[in-house]
Design a protein around this nucleic acid. Sequence first.
DNA 1: TGCTATAATGTGACCGGTCACAATTGTGAC
DNA 2: GTCACAATTGTGACCGGTCACATTATAGCA
Lengths: 332, 332
Amino acid sequence: MAEQSRPTIRDVAARAGVSYQTVSRVINGSDGVRPATRVRVEAAIDELGFRPNAIAQFMATGSTHTLTCLSPNLTDYTFACIIEGAEQEARQQGYFLFSASAPDEATFDLLLDQMVASRRTEGLLVINPYADRRFTLLPDTVPTVFVGARPREESVGSVALDDVGAGRLATRHLLDLGHRRIGLICGPDEEDCTQDRLSGYLDALAAAGVTGDPGLIMEGDWSATSGYQALARLLELDSPPTAIFAQNDRMAVGVLRAARDRGLRIPEDLAVIGVDDMPLASYFDPPLTTLRQDLYAIGRQAAQLVIQTVEHPESPRQHLLLPAELVVRQST
Amino acid sequence: MAEQSRPTIRDVAARAGVSYQTVSRVINGSDGVRPATRVRVEAAIDELGFRPNAIAQFMATGSTHTLTCLSPNLTDYTFACIIEGAEQEARQQGYFLFSASAPDEATFDLLLDQMVASRRTEGLLVINPYADRRFTLLPDTVPTVFVGARPREESVGSVALDDVGAGRLATRHLLDLGHRRIGLICGPDEEDCTQDRLSGYLDALAAAGVTGDPGLIMEGDWSATSGYQALARLLELDSPPTAIFAQNDRMAVGVLRAARDRGLRIPEDLAVIGVDDMPLASYFDPPLTTLRQDLYAIGRQAAQLVIQTVEHPESPRQHLLLPAELVVRQST
DNA sequence: TGCTATAATGTGACCGGTCACAATTGTGAC
DNA sequence: GTCACAATTGTGACCGGTCACATTATAGCA
């Protein structure tokens, strides 16, 4: 309302009695401007309330300083933390982070087109790239980092939880408590972390000289309901498990509930451990033992990696694994 | 790597043997292009893999088709749902939604500067504007909508839960069950929804002819811990409440826990109701009675409102209230 | 067939910055 | 006081599209 159209560098230049180029120099803090001139220009900027038009800067420099984070959704707590971590890091380094949810492949493709092909973004963070076949749609023209999964090709960096280690840690914890028949409730088969946590589980069993029983391994979909159903099936076995390792907390909560509905005491009749340490984990009944992952750190690292690749395209791709931490509460 | 620099409309024009303006027409689907010509241009676009540079389009048209949603954080489930809803709606209408977390006023101010002053964004969604004094920083140069709060000035639209109605509904539910001493655990004093849910509570009590007791009203900070502590204090009263209305689910969960720790049976000794219907509400012990709010709808409506104001600046500002729905489970 | 009305296409300037380089000014040495 | 050289400052073109308008091709009709 106040000003019909906002002032440009040329307006500032006119007011300060210099050329637009000098104003540009002042904006960018380049040297080669006499202090007296700089002061004069800065005064003009203040008087006019001038702010550089970022779009025009992008246009001229060809660089948007914007990263895009694509996630299956924004509401999953783990994804949200990763995004927030990445956002912080990006902001600190002078970048923007645009985050968008791509619930399906079509949306993913659309977003890719709008962000990458139209040159709005300089780097890509992809959370959970193997949710479906979306990873096949990725262009190789833009620096990319996978979050929570190993890349299938070499040109992409990655940051993830040390899932094998986490699987091992959880399983060993249950073994240490004397359990020998340990049920495993997995995430979807096609996801990396499912496979890795599984192999950590198998590792730990083998290391303890315990023979694994494939019948104790169930596939869930990360939801509490799927955990509930998995336990129901496990309890129908002739020789049911005495402990459950659920690959995430939501499924573990489903297990707690299914156990309670059947009158099982936890941890006496059944020990339960999850992964994530979600916010209210300690408020369930009983408080959930779990493996905490530092999701913010994962996000921060991921942002760092993309920025590194954006700024030094030839630098080697990195693959980071962050450790999980055992949080013992009362469900084991 | 493949192409050093991506093709522009002039490259396409040369290939198709037309002028760049004709290519521009084809891109934008304007009519006044002979079908034969259009086909030829489209072929050239495909052959070269041309995609219009969005930044250049912004530059030329002055419109970015981008909205910004500022939220205190991205990890709170309610905020995330709102953002996802807004994102969906925006996408459907051909807009982008940039969402950023502004944990404090300084960040909020910075983001405002980067998004608004530098003309990257055309509309603003502000979630929880009264988290602190951030609302005083808002510029009046860009269409703005408050989400989850009433605006303090007329130029801003708003979408929120019908908090008064929700407070009334929750309280009446408890009254209907025969409770007369109903404890209220509020959110922070300075937030609108705290005040509104409180006045709904008072309304319902008055309507039922029950005299309210100010000693039964506690202030929390939305966290489970604060709910836990609030109940602890309420139970020390000479005449403690027989029911609790917590203004959100997290605090309600804290209440459940505090009650369990003291050996109170729920709902026999103490009835508990929350607000939000957060994802695992039905997995707590006992499953939580609560008021569901349609957060996606709130987000969608908010996006709609901003877009409306962006496209028709003179249209009147709207203020929407969405109803809450009672979900009765076993905590009452 | 010629003429006008209309459809289709092309041209130049412009959005608001930046870049590369040219022009000007200031400085120190002689 | 001059000159060479460095420090400042200014100029034109450009980024990749779009706009307004000029130009040309086509169609419609007498």
